[in-house]
Design a binder for these strands. Structure first.
Lengths: 154, 154
DNA sequence: CTAATATAGGACTATATAAGTCCTATATTG
DNA sequence: CAATATAGGACTTATATAGTCCTATATTAG
């Protein structure tokens, strides 16, 4: 169905929430409370996001997490990758050798391009946009063209 | 990780293989054999693809499956949707009411646009392209822009 | 210096979803 | 009418994901 993992989904909510208070050090408990999500899960996500350097953390009393850089410079693909690893529509994109028919697969070469196009869409959306009330508008024909053989449908 | 389901992956291989003999009625057994995939799984996929009207089928001796229309007019999103349902990065895109915080979620309105952009990429790739040796070229900046027009959500 | 608080990292368990298999019914061909 | 092939759905199994918990470490306040 091509969906985000639940954790990745939560992570975007978490990051969006933090975008609203970029200066404050928010604890895992505060965030779990604010979003109505289970604390252990939120804590796990915050650790992964910190590890990926999207958040910075401080220990001890008054400690917590905050955005490591501006919300405009953090994209959806950053968040998703931090939580679940980089998008890979097919195994062969990031893990060569994982498919039995890889060697004589006609389609293999194309998947890298397709995967890249999908990632591009997600890297084009920043936390700042996601948290804004303004509509995100897709630059129209979001096309993948085949050289030479025009035959693009539509 | 944002990956295709294994079945969707198999389905693209299956469809690609059929693209090479669009006229022939290929049986489930023949296709399973040709691709080195388990027969029951291939049979299941063929049934779903037929149900979605991407393939036409004939029963009885000399029966089998063939593309219901030209390979150029069948896109990846068609195949994926037939097997797994339409792409829905977040639950709320296709199944409103499934998220507890839906009502006051800031990001909800944006996901429909993002989902649409991703789907567009996949609908821009046809079976004909996927089976061709020619490179699929992504039209460069695959961007999502923020425009100042009124918030469409809410 | 000690107690309290908070994150870091990883191991472990449970669960939901996907994948795979199988059974029965129906249609077509020779 | 026998053989072959798809149609549909129920069922089982496997796997990946999600969730939980434990121990270690760092920081702050008193």
């Amino acid at each position: 169905m091509l969906k985000l993992s639940r954790l990745a989904d939560y992570a975007t909510l978490l990051m969006c929430r933090m975008t609203r208070e970029p200066e404050a050090a928010l604890s895992a408990a505060q965030l779990a409370q604010a979003l109505g999500l289970p604390l252990p899960t939120v804590a796990k996500l915050l650790k992964r996001l910190t590890r990926a350097q999207l958040l910075s953390s401080e220990r001890g009393g008054n400690g917590g997490y905050r955005l490591a850089r501006s919300a405009a410079s953090i994209s959806l693909v950053d968040v998703i990758s931090a939580v679940d690893g980089a998008p890979a529509l097919t195994q062969c994109v990031n893990t060569p050798g994982s498919c039995a028919i890889e060697l004589n697969c006609e389609t293999r070469g194309h998947w890298a391009a397709i995967n890249h196009a999908v990632s591009s869409v997600l890297s084009g959306v920043s936390l700042a946009q996601l948290g804004s009330a303004r509509a995100i508008v897709i630059k129209p024909p979001q096309r993948i063209d085949q050289r030479k053989e025009g035959a693009s449908r539509r």
